[in-house]
Nucleic acid binder design. Structure first.
Lengths: 218, 218
DNA sequence: TAGATTGTTAATCGATTAACAATC
DNA sequence: TAGATTGTTAATCGATTAACAATC
């Protein structure tokens, strides 16, 4: 039973299950057991069953889960019904890569607009989407989107976030290495590439048998 | 007391503290309280103190933490002593952005080599680093690195991971939307851009007062 | 000393997982 | 029916946080 509250940890895994289910469907599998889904998703089978139970999604005992039905359920839970529009601010190396990222469109996300402040970039187009000036974000003739990607330098990220919020964006994916402050009701996630490398560096040195460095006093 | 085991959650926050401390140092702050560090890092003050206690790093009661000393301690704990070398495989939109990412070098990570299989790319250079053929990964005249970044399509990511492991790489940052299998002792982290958007989409719809979609049976 | 702030305790909370009754 | 596999329970584990004694 359930459906009320979906734990954060579960929400973070649903997209993984969804991707695996798409692959299973593509290769002609009609049903999948929690054991198989777990193996393909890199998690524990009990965790898969627990996660899915939060959706109120039930499989069939002795059989498993219907691949297509589960796909539908997870998509619905994530709210992936229609194409969600995203906007990207900042067209440096990373912003350009994001604007041209094929994976977004393939999974139902559409780049509705891209913004920068560089006069040399404004007026050109990225993958068919015209580059607008940041000042146009939220302008009446500007595309409406619910998700904004911040790919500007750290020192202007908060200002961009403020403008996004003012423009009605309620979810932000921040690539700038800075902590953003936003009003309640605005969801923020971050992708911090340097942080990832630093964390990897930690686990890597550990596995090498090296001690965690800082020596203890006592 | 401590230093033995550093919890995963703490490891993930140390880079954030480090970044904030660098900013504090740059703006001339000699000491910082857990309250200030927490505020700037977007976390709870008790969590900051608990995290730092795992390093065996002690501040001064009534005063706070010495900014420079804490920077040193966190860097040491993360093993960020000398420049760590990274290699990047895959020079599509994302791979090129990573190869040119200024943030890596600024934080002590050096792009030692980049690889692709496209003959049109092999032999050119990215930001001063020559583009090699993937077959050269692990070759005797190839730069040695401990961290590898995978920026190839999903269907070749596992093969690239295998080659990285064979070449002695012990930490992998995977940008391909696929679950990698690697031997024990190899650390893997992933950056899944589409997953981030899907998770944001979930929290965004929730905050709009919309119900979590899938209706309950009972 | 008085004020400030740490390091640690202990309570709480959320996530994970093995185990198994339910049931297809 | 026998075999398979779910959904759920309950135990365990790890992370968070408030509270406060220790102490600068």
């Amino acid at each position: 039973m359930n459906t009320r509250h979906i734990p954060d940890a579960t929400v973070g895994r649903l997209p993984v299950y969804l991707r695996v289910l798409l692959e299973l469907a593509a290769s002609g599998n009609a049903t999948v057991s929690s054991e198989q889904l777990a193996e393909l998703s890199g998690v524990n089978a009990a965790k898969v069953r627990k996660d899915l139970s939060h959706l109120g999604s039930y499989g069939t005992r002795g059989v498993g889960y219907d691949v297509d039905y589960l796909r539908y359920e997870i998509s619905a839970a994530l709210g992936l019904a229609d194409d969600a529009a995203i906007v990207i601010v900042g067209l440096g190396n990373l912003g350009r890569a994001l604007a041209n990222h094929a994976g977004f469109r393939e999974r139902g996300f559409k780049v509705a607009a891209v913004y920068d402040v560089d006069p040399a970039k404004v007026g050109t187009s990225m993958d068919g989407v015209p580059v607008r000036h940041l000042d146009d974000l939220g302008a009446s003739d500007s595309p409406v989107a619910s998700i904004g990607l911040i790919a500007v330098p750290a020192d202007s990220a908060q200002e961009v976030a403020n403008r996004m919020v003012a423009a009605g964006i309620t979810a932000i994916l921040n690539f700038a290495p800075v902590v953003l402050t936003v009003p309640d009701g605005v969801a923020v996630r971050k992708v911090d590439l340097t942080l990832e490398l630093q964390v990897l560096n930690f686990y890597q040195q550990r596995h090498r048998g090296g001690s965690p460095v800082v020596t203890e006093s006592a």
